[in-house]
Design a protein around this nucleic acid. Structure first.
Lengths: 157, 157
DNA sequence: TTAGTAGCGAAATTTATTATCAGTAGGAGG
DNA sequence: CCTCCTACTGATAATAAATTTCGCTACTAA
C-alpha cells in the first residue's frame, strides 16, 4: 500500500470522503520538497500545477489531515501556521537560527522522561508537546556578530 | 526603588523616553490580576479606566517592553499573542489543558542540561527556548472523556 | 437512477497586527 | 525657565492570515 493509499484509507476510516481535491492535495504534500509548509505554499503549488483547488479547500483539508493525524501543525514563526507530515517513528523538535532562519530538527528521547515527571506532578495526561530552541548556527556566529550584511533577523518566541 | 521605577529606569537606560502613556501602561501591567495577557486585554483595561491611550500605542509599548526584557512574548494559543512580566528568577514553561484552557507553569531546570547537549551536537549558541506541553488536567479527564458539557476545545500546537 | 449530504470554489468577512501621518510633548541644552 | 528637536502619540487605514458563507457539485448509499 502506497503512502497515498494509506492516507486515503485513514480518511475513509474517519468517515471522510475521498474527493478529487483531497487526492490532489495529498499527492502534492507527498511531492513537496520542503519539510515544513504553510497552507498558502500548498495553494500556490496547486495553482502552478493548474489544479482548480480553492484556498478554502486547502485550509479545510489541512485541518482535516491534522485531526486524523496525517499532519502536524506547528508554530515555527509568528506569521503563519506551518504543517509537516506526521511520522510516527520520528518525534522531534526544532532548533531555529535567528540569523539565517535555518531550521534543524532533533529527536526528543530525553524530553520524554521530563514529561513523565510533569504528568505525575500536575496530574495531567499529556497528549502533545512542543519544544523549540532559538539561537545562532555556526555560520551566523562567525559571520560578524552583528547581523551585518545578513538576511532579516527573526524574532524568537 | 519600586517595580515601576525599575522599569522606567530600564526604559531610560535603553534610550526610550518616559511618556505619560508608557507610565500608565506599566502601572496597568503591574496591577493586572492575570499572569498572561494580550494587547487587546491591556487596551480594554485602559479604556475602562478612562485612560486615553490608543491601541497602536499599546502594541508599540508592549513591543518595546519585550525588546528591553521587561516582558516576555508567548504563543499560548493560536489566535493572539500573549505577554507576561519577565521574572529573572523564574524561568518556566507552560502546561496547557486542551479541555478547559487552564495554564500551569513549571520550572525548567532539567531542560537546561538538554540544551547544553543540543548546543554541542549542532554547534549552535542557544539564546532562547520554548517548551509547551498540551494535555488534559485532572478535572477534564474525569468530566466524561468527550468534552461534553464542557467549554470550547482548544487546538494543540 | 436518484436523493441526500458532505464537500466544493469564490468571495466576503473577521480578527490581530502593523503602517501611516499630522500633531504633541518629553527632555536636553541653552 | 524657555526652546527646539525629534521620538512618540492617537486615529485610522492597510495588511494578511484564516474562517465563514453560500449556491452549486459530485460522492455514495439506496
Amino acid at each position: 500500500m502506497s503512502r497515498q493509499e494509506e492516507m486515503e484509507a485513514r480518511l475513509v476510516e474517519e468517515n471522510y470522503k475521498i474527493t478529487q481535491p483531497r487526492r490532489i492535495i495529498l499527492k502534492t504534500l507527498l511531492e513537496l520538497q520542503e519539510k515544513h509548509f504553510t497552507a498558502e505554499e500548498v495553494y500556490s503549488r496547486l495553482r502552478q500545477e493548474g489544479a482548480g483547488v480553492g484556498l478554502a479547500t486547502v485550509y479545510r483539508t489541512l485541518e482535516v489531515l491534522c485531526k486524523i493525524g496525517i499532519l502536524n501543525s506547528l508554530n515555527l514563526d509568528e506569521e503563519s501556521r506551518c504543517y509537516e507530515l506526521e511520522d510516527v517513528d520520528d518525534h522531534h523538535h526544532h532548533l531555529i537560527c535567528l540569523g539565517c532562519g535555518e531550521i534543524k530538527e532533533f529527536s526528543d528521547e530525553m524530553i520524554k522522561d521530563f514529561m513523565k515527571h510533569i504528568e505525575d506532578e500536575y496530574n495531567y495526561k499529556v497528549t502533545d508537546h512542543l519544544l523549540k530552541y532559538y539561537g545562532y548556527c555556526s555560520k551566523c556566529r562567525q559571520a560578524g556578530e552583528g547581523n551585518e550584511g545578513g538576511e532579516e533577523e527573526i524574532s524568537p518566541k
